[in-house]
Amino acid sequence: MEYNFQFGVLANYLPEFFGGLGLTLFLSFAGIFGGLGLGIACAIISVRGPLFPRAVVRIYVEIMRNTPMLVQIFVIFFGLPSLGVRLSPFTSVLVAIVLNNGGYIAEIVRAGIESIHPSQIEAAESLGLTRGQTMRFVILPPALERVMTPIISQSVLLMLATSLVSAVGVEDLTGVAMIASSETFRTMEIYLVIAVIYICLNFIFRILLNAVGLIVFKRSRQRFLGRV
């Protein structure tokens, strides 16, 4: 068992790797924030909405949370064309990622909303706020603040899961690695480097998303500043 590590050949693929990294970052951010918006909307519908939209959201959320993301990507990319909807690989995976994350975020945010005591709603409505204003100013902010940690964990998992897009030929970080390794056979070196990059991204995303949380939530920020 002698293996001679050679990282040198990777240098030839530097531009491709940066391209792949860019794509991974783009898909991650689009998925995280697109999914967040979609998830919040779905969470609101599933606690406050009329019966029919509520049922639709329920079904959507269950499908997203109970099927593998790879299958979701395949359905959109390979399955939809038979219904006449033809999307590029890139669009397909973008849609799949946002839909997938939306399903998970919807469940997290719904739990946050349900953790808000009904007396808060009574207080808001007693002041003459509309249901929409109550949701926007009284329920959502503390609900989201409370579930910030699970949202961040889910977002990081999503970032890692974007590697699945390589399965339909999208050249994200993993996709580029697949190409490079089939051309150079330096499989071990390439995937080791890729793994390290994902670990770094993981840290960077956690820090970044926590920072976003501190910018958005004033009370969390003041507590944080109070501790340091």
């Binding site: 007396s119 808060q120 009574e122 207080a123 808001a124 409505e125 007693s126 002041l127 003459g128 706020l129 509309t130 100013f137 009284v138 902010p141 503390p142 603040e145 939530f217 004033k218 009370r219």
Partner: peptide, 19 residues
């Protein structure tokens, strides 16, 4: 809502908005 603008109510549990 119009009625509630003119009728203030305070509860035992304060119910301030914590955020």
């Amino acid at each position: 809502r119009a009625l509630r603008r003119d009728v203030g109510i305070v509860f035992q549990g304060y119910n301030l908005f914590p955020h």
